[in-house]
């Protein structure tokens, strides 16, 4: 019997929030002999057209699930509706892109259908015919290998887990499209709207160099060191990790990461930043990354071009002084 994979996408006002092509490729590569059937679930308010479009682009079967409360992401309601859909096809895997709402959905489904659930999957390898998943732990410092004894397995997959070149070519044939209307279902979760919070401030986009502060700066006074370091460059801006902004040491407009800004300067200098995926999601595409951290095992070093293991409180003053010496 062919195995089944279910993919779930997310929409805001009938638009997908993240692409699904890579996700579909990830799922496909979980089944080495490629003998599988797949279904993409598209929840939304009015998404039959979108489902049709994805179907024709990828050749995958789609199921549009419509409800007025799906105008914006609604993991609670989806978690209520999906068990009946899923149990019909008994999938081996249920895959979605990794974000907090999909972790919520994954958790709800895991409880409802009694399935294993692994979030934040970065990669996998097949061992003895079974996949072993790699994901990060301890603020990104250690990688963990996890396996499941039973199916189905619910996965939230971090974008970038599979390079584009590994994505199998789409299957031939056209996918079917089904639409399920669920408006009569009630739940205690009613999304009202989605709004933007980040102030329009282009300083980070325009800077050649970003000097970024993490909790390694320890206290607000040390922000001065970051400012002084930025001032040795011709066109630099300062930024920070979320926690630095949470402390009010920098405005939120300066926060880099998954829930902040995505930046791609010529040079990103990470000072005392641990480098969890939530932060690196916002800066890993920078042209050149320099990491200064006193912990030689800090995960930021795994994406940096140049690493300096030093205490920034002593190192940055030396850097600034040496620059001033050279200039004079």
């Amino acid at each position: 019997m062919n195995r089944q994979i279910i993919f779930i996408t997310e929409t805001i006002q009938n638009q997908m929030t993240q692409p699904v092509k890579e996700l579909i490729g990830f799922g496909a590569s979980l089944i080495p002999d490629h003998e599988y059937q797949s279904l993409l679930i598209v929840p939304g308010q009015d998404v039959a057209e979108l489902a049709k479009q994805i179907s024709s682009e990828t050749g995958i079967h789609t199921l549009a699930i419509e409800h007025e409360d799906f105008k914006f992401p609604n993991p609670h309601l989806l978690g209520k509706i999906l068990p009946t859909v899923i149990q019909k096809s008994m999938p081996s895997y249920i895959c979605m892109n990794h974000n907090v709402r999909n972790c919520h959905l994954a958790a709800t489904l895991a409880i409802r259908i009694n399935a294993a659930c692994i979030t934040g999957v970065e990669s996998f390898e097949i061992q003895n015919g079974y996949p072993v998943f790699t994901r990060m732990m301890f603020n990104g410092k250690l990688a963990a290998k996890t396996a499941c004894k039973t199916e189905p397995i619910i996965l939230t997959v971090i974008p970038g887990a599979l390079s584009d070149s590994l994505i199998p070519n789409r299957k031939n044939g056209k996918g079917t499209i089904h639409v399920m209307k669920t408006d009569d279902l009630r739940s205690g979760y009613h999304p009202q709207k989605v709004y933007e919070t980040i102030a329009k401030d282009n300083r980070l986009e325009e800077a050649d160099v970003i000097v970024s502060a993490g909790m390694g700066i320890e206290k607000e006074e040390n922000m001065e060191l970051i400012r002084k370091t930025a001032s040795i460059f011709t066109n630099a801006a300062i930024a920070g990790s979320r926690i630095v902004c949470d402390h009010g040491w920098l405005p939120y407009g300066c926060q880099v990461g998954e829930t902040g800004k995505q930046v791609t300067p010529k040079l990103y200098v990470a000072c005392g930043i641990s480098g969890t995926i939530q932060h690196t999601a916002g800066m890993k595409k920078s042209n050149c990354i320099v990491a200064i951290n006193k912990d030689p095992n800090a995960p930021i070093f795994s994406i940096a071009d140049y690493g300096v293991v030093e205490d920034l409180k002593t190192f940055l003053p030396i850097l600034i002084a040496k620059h001033d010496e050279q200039k004079n």
């Binding site: 963990a144 004894k149 039973t150 030396i318």
Partner: peptide, 26 residues
């Protein structure tokens, strides 16, 4: 049945592109 098993934890391999600077702070 819904349990997954943690097989192992370990330090991830560092990127091949990194060069760690050596020497004194200066």
């Amino acid at each position: 049945p819904d349990h997954h098993e943690l097989l192992s934890i370990g330090y991830p391999v560092t990127s091949s592109r990194i060069s760690m600077l050596e020497g004194s702070a200066e």
